[in-house]
């Protein structure tokens, strides 16, 4: 396996390294965009425990244009249960009345201890602060993701109890992440030998990844994580320290490049270019 490829997972410590790298890189490359911040976990009961993630990434105040008429978001009227109708209605109103609303989204990237990968949580709110329901969030997604979601209602984007805030958020299911990352990173490290090939190039090759989180059952030859793998990985971390940036630092950025488009959040391509 190519150096640095590992098995596509991260340890909690590596997650922090990658997260801090992203914060720095983002700030440097996109000073005009909303900032990613590193939020230490304040629930003191757990934060003192070594070996577990001690923080998470936050991106706030992202406006997502929506052609939905917000009245369709009738939280107080449980009568409208038929989501199919709601969708037609929203489109119709949007067209006929020219209503254009903005939904305010917050994104969290939280380390998932079970899958040992970053996990994307998002929450959308209306202008008046009410949380968006699943069907509204779905309609804010790119068409490709809507299709995937229709096919896989419960294994793609679901409402989950946020692991740190303990409130309902939407989450991209993490169980396919390590497999994708293993593939992407192995490709990445081959290019890395030529030093500054931007990861975006690697990702171009991967094509449209929007449906990818669905292909989690294609774990054909995925070897289980072995003790050897872990040891091997730490060696490589040391070996690669002399290089411009290690795969660990770039892990989150790389993962974002395919995970975020699935929820309609574009990552500017220049973030991926190595700035020296």
């Amino acid at each position: 396996m190519a150096p640095g490829a590992g098995d596509g997972t991260l340890t909690a410590e590596e997650f922090k390294i990658a997260a801090l790298y992203l914060v720095m890189k983002w700030k440097h490359c996109c000073p005009d965009l909303p900032e990613w911040t590193w939020q230490p976990i304040e629930k003191t009961l757990l934060s003192t425990t070594p070996g577990y993630a001690c923080g998470y990434l936050v991106l706030e105040n992202v406006y997502v244009g929506s052609d939905q008429k917000d009245d369709a978001e009738n939280l107080d009227e449980p009568d409208e249960e038929d989501y199919g109708d709601a969708e037609d209605q929203a489109t119709m109103h949007g067209d006929s009345m020219g209503v254009f609303n903005q939904h305010l989204y917050t994104y969290h990237v939280v380390y998932n201890e079970s899958y040992r990968v970053p996990m994307l949580f998002l929450q959308g709110r209306l202008q008046d602060g009410r949380p968006l329901r699943w069907d509204s969030v779905l309609r804010d997604l790119p068409v490709g993701s809507q299709l995937v979601s229709n096919q896989s209602r419960w294994t793609f984007l679901t409402q989950e109890d946020h692991p740190l805030i303990h409130r309902p958020w939407f989450a991209l299911h993490p169980c396919g992440t390590s497999e994708i990352m293993r593939l992407v990173l192995s490709d990445f490290s081959q290019h890395q030998e030529k030093d500054s090939v931007p990861i975006s190039k690697v990702l171009e090759k991967s094509g449209d990844m929007s449906g990818v989180p669905e292909k989690k059952d294609s774990h054909k030859s995925s070897p289980g994580r072995t003790e050897f793998g872990a040891a091997e990985r730490s060696d490589r971390r040391i070996n690669s320290e002399g290089q411009v940036s290690s795969w660990i630092e770039k892990y989150i950025l790389t993962w974002m490049s395919f995970a975020f488009p699935t929820v309609g959040l574009a990552i500017p391509s220049y973030v991926f270019v190595d700035s020296k």
Partner: peptide, 15 residues
């Protein structure tokens, strides 16, 4: 989904 997660934790995959 919890069953899958537990399976991943225990065996490293959800096959």
């Amino acid at each position: 989904n919890a069953l899958k997660e537990a399976s991943y934790v225990m065996y490293g995959n959800i096959k």
